[in-house]
Amino acid sequence: MIEVSGLRKTFGEVVAVDEVSFVAGDGEVTGLLGPNGAGKSTTMRMLYGLMAPEAGEVRVDGIPVASDPLAAQERLGALPDMHALYPRLSGRENIGYFARLRRVPAADVGHRTEAFSRLLDMDSFLDRRAKGYSHGERSRVLLARALIHEPQNVLLDEPTNGLDVMSTRRMRDMIRELRRQGRAVLFSSHIMQEVSLLCDRIVIIASGRVVAAGAPDAIRRAAGCEDLEEAFVQLTAPRGGGPA
């Protein structure tokens, strides 16, 4: 479970994130939805301890990230905004590297990698150097690499960005599987449809602030429109500047 309360982060004059609070519960998929530049990645970076918030607190399974980032990171797996494979290692070696850093027992790494390979259909390229991977192949290996230690909390920053239909589907299946296993999944996206398909709870963020949060139905009701996409446009439009 990830608990976020009152997060604030500024870069010079720019307030990137302000008073962001939400909870991503176990066995739930939580969507962090917002337009580009809304502060999603900055929020995510504070969640996995790479950026220090100026105010507020993040707890991962009750562990405060600010005071004990390593212990909190032990409880989570993440696919950050900046992610890349090591081009001179094969997909399998990329996964193995993170597995060893995460101290996954050597005996488990093999069969877990095989399981991911089946689930994400990676057999054909897993032993090739990552340098020649297509975007879809890379994203599958990245996902397996981020989850190889079977974390209780999963944070995915725009995981379907630039993926084709098939890869996006695989990603969705993976996220549903993680929910079925009782993990807390938080993923960010700027695509309404994707979030509405998958999420139990949605947190809409615009200009660094939470403008709406709750189940998809509740958000529809709050925005006063039937269509979730219309609700999103209404909620994220700059105040006073939206259509009447």
Binding site: A78, P80, M82, L85, P87, L101, A146
Partner: peptide, 14 residues
């Protein structure tokens, strides 16, 4: 430069 540092740093390794 490659952008792998962020993913590396979330691995609970000092």
């Amino acid at each position: 430069e490659r952008g792998s540092i962020e993913a590396l740093l979330v691995n609970a390794v000092p």
